[in-house]
Structure formats: structure tokens, C-alpha cells
Write a protein that binds this DNA or RNA. Structure first.
Lengths: 92, 92
DNA sequence: TTGACATCTGCACACTTGCTCATGTATTCA
DNA sequence: TGAATACATGAGCAAGTGTGCAGATGTCAA
């Protein structure tokens, strides 16, 4: 149950959700992700490190670029279901 | 997308996941939840307040007791899917 | 080689978070 | 009424977290 909380916790950060969301459309390199989420490449790299450690994303290196992609068929479902929840239940 | 992260963040704490997990078996009062998760009633009440604000749980008052229950048909699914994920993909 | 580029990582710091403690409110029972 | 119970809430603190900065590594092109 602690591991469950850890997965949720990784997705419980705006930056990381935006990264994961961006990756649902296909693999992206770090600099593209950085411009997509509007943060420094350093910050994105730090977050990708966490997502990588939890095996939520995988990396494919091509020259000096590092392409990240989702490494989990459940994450897309979790994200989709939660988006649906948020849309259905408007916050007070 | 920020709201999505907020839902994940709420489920991303061991105490709150245990509370939600306990509530999947039916409604519980605060003191029962406190003994189930092994924390003070104050601590549990604080967390329930957050879950309540996000409409993940609802409260039914009966005398001096407050019975909490899941107020979201998605949460059970999220919890189940994530449990499955954790079991399928053992951490390194 | 030299330089530019893409990424990673250690460190520091501001900020957040979950808990305990103390107190307050509301209900029940004697 | 008074005391006990169940819960809620605000303050404060220790611990954790995300980010920028600086520097290191590795790659490509000239």
C-alpha cells in the first residue's frame, strides 16, 4: 500500500503530470519537455529521474538527445480516469 | 491538469491511501479510522478534511459520531488499477 | 582540438506537508 | 447541570520536496 501511495505521489505533482501527459502523445526529448512545461531542462531532468526510478518512463538515447516515453500501460488509464473524474465532479 | 495532480497528490500519502482503502469496505467513523491507520484522531481528522474538500469522501453525522464514506465511484477503480500496477511491476 | 549542445547531478534554499499539542464545539448520559 | 465522549481546528515544528545554479559528462560538427 505504500508503493501504491508512491505511484500516486509521483503523479501528484503538476510538473510531473504535465510531463506524463505530454508523453501520452509520443516520446519527447528533454529540451522539448522543458519548453512544453515551461521549466528549466535541469528541473525536468530531476523529475524525469524520479519517474524513471519508478519505471513510469523509459529513456532511449540517440546521440546527445534523450527521448523519454511512457513505460507503463496503466499510467495512461489512470490519467484518463482521473481526468474524467475531475471533469465530472467540479470543485466547490 | 492541476486538478488532476491534486487528486493524485491526495492519494499520494500513505495515511490517506490507507484511509481510502479502509473506506472501500464501507463507511467508518473517525475513531475507527484512527485505530485502523494507527494515528491520532486529530491527524485523521486533518486528512479527512482534505479528502472532504476534494469530494473524495462524504460525511454522515449521527449523534456525536461522524461516519465517512467514499463519495466517488472512480476512486475505487483508481486504487484497484494502481494496486494491479504495483503488483505487476516490481520495483528495482 | 575547440566549441557548442544536450543532459545529468550535487548542493542550497525557499516552500510545502503531516504530525502533535492545545483548544473549541457539539452531543450524550448521569 | 456537569462530565465524558467524538470530532474539528489553529498553531507550531521537524521533515520532506521542487527548483535554480554551477559544474561534470558525453556527443556532434568544424
Amino acid at each position: 500500500m505504500r508503493d501504491v501511495a508512491e505511484v500516486f505521489n509521483l503523479l501528484g505533482d503538476p510538473t510531473r503530470v504535465r510531463i506524463v501527459d505530454a508523453l501520452t502523445h509520443g516520446e519527447r526529448c528533454v529540451c522539448d519537455l522543458a519548453s512544453l512545461v515551461g521549466l528549466s531542462e535541469s528541473a525536468v531532468s530531476h523529475q524525469l529521474r524520479l519517474l524513471r526510478a519508478a519505471r513510469l518512463v523509459r529513456v532511449r538515447r540517440a546521440g546527445r538527445l534523450a527521448f523519454y516515453a511512457l513505460d507503463d500501460h496503466h499510467v495512461v488509464g489512470l490519467l484518463r480516469d482521473t481526468c474524467r473524474h475531475v471533469e465530472e465532479e467540479p470543485r466547490a
